Amino acid sequence: MKNGARSTGPLQEELATGERSTRNRVARSILDHGPSTVADLAGRLGLTQAAVRRHLDALVADDVVEAREQRVYGTRTRGRPAKVFALTDCGRDAFDQSYDKLAVDALRWIERNAGGKAAVAAFARARLAAQAETYRKAIDAAAPEERTEALAKALSVDGYAATARSAPGRANGEQLCQHHCPVAHVAEQYPQLCEAETEVFSQLLGTHVQRLATIAHGDGVCTTFIPRSEPPGPPTAQSPGTPQTTNNPSASTAGRNPA
């Protein structure tokens, strides 16, 4: 090498590897927490907002993430909605190691040869019933006010990256947010999977639930509204012969997905 110059190849490779690693952390954070603002990502990852924007620009160019307006549930505040970054289908595929085509082919065969859509729905319920036993143990071990959080943690173990939080704009409810769905591509064609899941949530929590959004329908996160349980009040007087009414979890919006 002339004039004492040295090769920068290894250094450049090391820097490039570090950039990719940080970029993957940004994408993974969006996967685990759902659509995120630049400020959200900077706070979670300990990066400057300028650094986060640089990585997001690269991820957008690679079709791993996309920018969109933040969806607001409840009362919208003044001003323009914040810009958030969400994973694209391509970005989700980078994390998924699933057999989507095989699953779709199997469900299509069931639909055509074993009873139509009703058979697919029965399969979806049976599949979720097996998973639900593990979830039920976690919920039964939790205090009543922590049951949604317990369900979120159990779902996260199965790869759904779920969280629980108070529902914005609703004084007496929570949101169960699933930031990842291992079967999202299959559920796009067979919404019975989402409907069965919503029914199971209702049964596990003992209350009606309302599905607000699903990844399968193009939303950034699967969101389910769960009303908080009210403490039982004093019995009310009823006229003789008046039948008592009970809450029926199945009489709910379970399975309703946004169009």
Rank of each mutant, 00 (worst) to 15 (best):
L151R: 08
G233I: 08
G233Y: 05
P191N: 13
G241R: 00
I139Q: 00
H217D: 15
G159Q: 06
A152I: 01
Q189E: 12
Q131D: 12
D140H: 07
G233M: 03
V209I: 12
V200P: 05
R136P: 07
N172G: 09
Q178K: 15
I139M: 00
D158A: 11
I226V: 13
Q238L: 15
A213T: 14
S239H: 15
G173Q: 11
E230W: 11
V200T: 15
T198L: 03
A129D: 13
P144S: 05
A196R: 01
T198D: 11
L128N: 14
N172D: 12
P227K: 01
T134V: 15
Q238H: 15
V183T: 02
D219I: 06
T148C: 04
V209G: 01
P182D: 15
P231L: 08
Q131K: 12
E146M: 00
T214V: 09
R136A: 15
T148E: 03
E146D: 09
Y160V: 06
D140C: 11
A167N: 11
N172E: 08
A187C: 14
P232G: 02
Y135E: 05
A154Y: 05
T223N: 05
C194W: 00
K153C: 10
E149Q: 04
G233P: 08
A164K: 01
H217L: 04
E199I: 08
A161H: 10
D219Y: 08
C177G: 04
A143H: 13
Y190P: 01
E146W: 03
A138W: 03
I226R: 02
P168M: 10
G218V: 12
P182C: 13
T224L: 02
L151G: 05
A152Q: 04
T207K: 06
V157T: 14
P182Y: 14
G220M: 04
S166P: 13
R136M: 09
H180K: 13
E133V: 14
R147H: 04
Q203M: 11
Q131A: 12
A162N: 07
V209F: 00
A132L: 03
V200Q: 06
A164Q: 03
T223C: 08
R211M: 02
A237S: 12
H185S: 12
P240N: 12
P232A: 00
